[in-house]
Write a protein that binds this DNA or RNA. Structure first.
Lengths: 343, 343
DNA sequence: CTGAAAGCGCTAACAC
DNA sequence: GTGTTAGCGCTTTCAG
């Protein structure tokens, strides 16, 4: 493995000069620089980032901390899309990514800041972390620059990226109202997600804006689980046959509601309209296809990295970024579209 | 940021002793060790892996090199599953993961071994790399320990993990033959994937074993693309109406064939049986649901890491690992199942 | 424009 | 058992 020492020796200069030449400093003779660059190439030199990181006290790596990257998370590949966006931005800006996947067992062994300090990451992005997660407190307390996805906390070293979940939910419910629905239930996610609170808020606001009553017993939690949502919606629909539309805080849960509707023999959308949230891949493959609120999750990851690196490089003014959502109308709410497709 | 020096100072010992105590060496007084460990905790010490890596010449990181982690790869989340398996194994064994995602443009800037040498990864796992990819040669030539996914190359420093693709394809075609099919076409993947060659081989062997002719014009490439497979199968089915079954080298392509069948008004499976490969999530959500050859991709990633770390730690005898596949029968080939479900 | 020297935090001979 | 010393590969004062 060739080092700058080797280059210095064959070039007949000092290591200082080699370092300066290779790092593009101005105060080095153009000829010397060219010579050094040539030799570096000949010797297949690669800088040792460990050594550089050690002395510079920055590693040019950022840590992505995700939770629950297990078999079940394959269905909604939220994490993968975040990762994909993060990766894109990070590599554009010359950083590398180290992945920390936390599980409840591993969490006890090593704390968040230990993880980050050991690897000397310059900053971290947290995704899929619940609001009661012990890591979260650490973030706020530690002074490691950090961007949260979907958790709105801000400080000198902490920023966040999210979508406008209140507005997103509003769009969904408004769409149902426009289709003539008056009895609209919500299957929400669990309380440990900030987005759940937001989407519930949007649901309520949309109803109120249309002078429709908010009925607390039409608000149930599906815990972001397909099965759980199926169960809960089954109960709900049995108990309140007057419900004609359900807004779900995730597509996965909407899929569960679709199953419940099938069990009850309720045709979607003629007897029951269903709208999801996320626009996961399955939403356009289910039967019927699923109307949903699309969020650009890859962009979420991209913007998170962007914000973080801006913070690291002192270019940041803002500490937050809120992305937009889009209503995608498909068969599960649109009677006309549905019947067109059937024939 | 506290260092062993700080600990040494407050403990009144030398840094050597601290280092030894913290790393569990035997030749240190138990009392001294306890004292040092306590102080380390008090001072919230985390070892600096950069410094350690520099001196030990191993970083305890492994690099995962994947290609094309873009928007399109969300559909079959092969990469994510590999990543998930890799991550699981790696964290069990005390390594960290750094992700290198290559794109054609970035490839020109930095070579594979540069990437690995700069970050001083102890070893690398390559997934989704085409067999004509320039990176591949580098691997074989560089002396960086490396495990390939789905490319069977072996050397002192190179191992691989794959599934038995010949057998997998055989299972698929055998299943079709057992259903009474005699005219079976194949939509294969592109030639830059080793698995394509293997699956074609399995297809041919299964036909021959049943004394069925292999017709070269029934072998077409869908290039692992849904759209391309749709086009190609459309042509194929128009030209050869006698074809009653199609084996696809990926589920995504099978989905394309399903669309083609719909366009031609060929009911699946009564007029045309379709079988895929991979068992992606969509396979159980499509209409009709897709019979397929399942491979455990998470396990693929897990075993790849396992093999690599064994190699790194000198525990390896073998340089290869071949996993099994499983036939999953769903509606797209099973007339009985299909009709049952319809009523 | 270039070089000598110090030091980042850690480990590993080698002494005692 | 413990300390002294050197050095991993690099950047960065400070002199010249």
């Amino acid at each position: 493995m060739t080092t700058i020492k080797d280059i210095a020796k064959t070039a007949g200069v000092s290591v200082t000069t080699v370092s300066r030449a290779l790092n593009g400093y101005s105060d080095v003779n153009e000829k010397t620089r060219q010579k050094i660059i040539n030799i570096a190439e000949d010797l297949k030199y690669s800088p040792n980032t460990l050594a550089r990181g050690l002395v510079m006290n920055r590693s040019k790596t950022i840590g992505l901390l995700v939770s629950g990257m297990d078999r079940s998370s394959v269905k909604d590949n939220f994490t993968y899309q975040v990762l994909s966006g993060v990766n894109e931005c990070i590599s554009e800006r010359g950083y590398d990514l180290v992945l920390f996947s936390t599980t409840s067992t591993k969490q006890r062994e090593k704390t968040y800041s230990q993880l980050c300090r050991e690897r000397r990451v310059d900053g971290a992005i947290l995704s899929g972390i619940k609001i009661d997660d012990p890591y979260l407190n650490e973030v706020v307390e530690s002074n490691i620059p950090c961007v949260l996805i979907d958790i709105p906390i801000q400080s000198e070293t902490v920023g966040f990226v999210t979508t406008d979940n209140v507005l997103g939910a509003k769009k969904a419910v408004r769409h149902l109202i426009e289709q003539g629905h008056k009895n609209i239930a919500i299957i929400n996610g669990h309380d440990q997600a900030f987005v759940s609170k937001q989407r519930l808020k949007g649901y309520k606001e949309a109803l109120e804006a249309a002078n429709l009553p908010v009925k607390e017993y039409w608000i149930v939690s599906g815990e972001f689980s397909e099965d759980r949502a199926q169960e809960k919606s089954l109960e709900l629909l049995k108990q309140f046959p007057e419900i004609t539309a359900i807004f779900c805080a995730s597509d996965l849960m909407a899929l569960g509601v679709l199953k419940a509707a099938k069990i009850l023999g309720l045709e979607v959308p003629s007897k029951l309209s269903v709208i999801g949230y996320d626009n996961i891949l399955l939403a356009s493959y289910s039967t019927p296809t699923l109307t949903t609120i699309a969020q650009d999750i890859i962009e979420l990851g991209y913007q998170a990295s962007h914000l973080l690196i801006d913070m690291l490089e002192g270019e940041s003014n803002s500490r937050e970024c809120i992305l937009d959502t889009e209503l995608i109308i498909r068969e599960s709410t649109d009677s006309k579209q549905r019947s067109l497709i059937k024939e």
